[in-house]
Design a protein around this nucleic acid. Sequence first.
DNA 1: TTTTGTGAAACGCTTCACAGCT
DNA 2: AGCTGTGAAGCGTTTCACAAAA
Lengths: 216, 216
Amino acid sequence: MPDQISELTTNRLSLYLRYLNELYGKGVRTVSSKVLAEQLGVHAALIRRDLSNFGELGVRGVGYVVEDLRRELRSILGLDRKLGVAIIGAGNLGLALADYPGFRREGFRIVALFDNLQTKVGSVSRGGVAIHDIRDLEEIARREAITIAVIAVPEASAREVVQTVVEAGITAVLNFSPGALRVPPHVKLKSVDLTVSLESLSFYLAREAGRSQNGD
Amino acid sequence: MPDQISELTTNRLSLYLRYLNELYGKGVRTVSSKVLAEQLGVHAALIRRDLSNFGELGVRGVGYVVEDLRRELRSILGLDRKLGVAIIGAGNLGLALADYPGFRREGFRIVALFDNLQTKVGSVSRGGVAIHDIRDLEEIARREAITIAVIAVPEASAREVVQTVVEAGITAVLNFSPGALRVPPHVKLKSVDLTVSLESLSFYLAREAGRSQNGD
DNA sequence: TTTTGTGAAACGCTTCACAGCT
DNA sequence: AGCTGTGAAGCGTTTCACAAAA
């Protein structure tokens, strides 16, 4: 078992698990890397390579036993225990993320929202997640065993918030705020930059436009 | 100028532009790849390589002229014209995205939300973006020159919605729904999978946990 | 001297192709 | 025969290191 697994691989593991859940629900017993590959739009050898990082999970001549591989992946991804999640920032995005069904489905426990605006503190999201004062983060994080923070605050407060999160002892951060954040080495930071995603698409459109009209 | 630019590069171009905007606001005249690199946490040579794809944008011995590079990047990313964006799905996430300030800032025009639920059609988001019937997408897309669709619908309807979007003549799609989507080759699809992002973090936590407690 | 632009080396990820197991 | 697991090849991205320019 190699000691460093790339993020590209872990992302795909999550995709494999999602499809295995679907197969499991349908009562399918085994699945080959070929079938998995066709469904997910990746190469079969890549799936075998990804899975082989964690042992010999398949059966030669047969494929992968759906129930076993599903259990294995859940364990590899750490989804067999319920992880506590805090959402920082009770703006539009934070509230939407707090109620996002995809987070609850695979064993995450959305414990609370946090904000610094006193007018928001004390109320709840539509789905019933309570909004607390950001100053209570550390206490609640310890009490509720929160290990993941999702940051959805404006760019201006992002740095300060990350600091608060790290000081509260949280070691995994999913960041939706724009801008580069720095965290200590023991903290894992993953950023989803919505503006970057959209501008990247814009680049594609700009290129296509230039490509179709050739010197007229 | 190479004819294929990787998505890794275009994502970084967007980050460079964001920081250049900041420098421009502060009145800074020039910046070196070294300074840029330190701020953004990437290697200086990578920045030079990225930019060199689009010509000789810098000045040897000096660095890059902030105003010029900023203008150049805006043009490269196609942000010098205002692109029309439609958000499909007026749930929590769609509504949050419609009002997301980061989208408006860099020259995108959020034209409308679309949903199939008649109870939502006719109302507006908090920020004032109107919700239309998804059946009117094609007509409105043509009239308002919408070139980008942001998909924020439940997994079950995602496939159908992509089809509708493609038929409406939209050629760039930013997808927030889980699951693999297939689009024709002339359409650019970029997916942000929130569940995958969170599960990837969970993997990191599972690994760390196993690492600290060694056989006790 | 400073800093870019870029061949060449290094690195990492994916695919090929097949031995090995069922 | 069928399908996994994997060494080796292939390919794309990043970093090194330095010539060229200001």
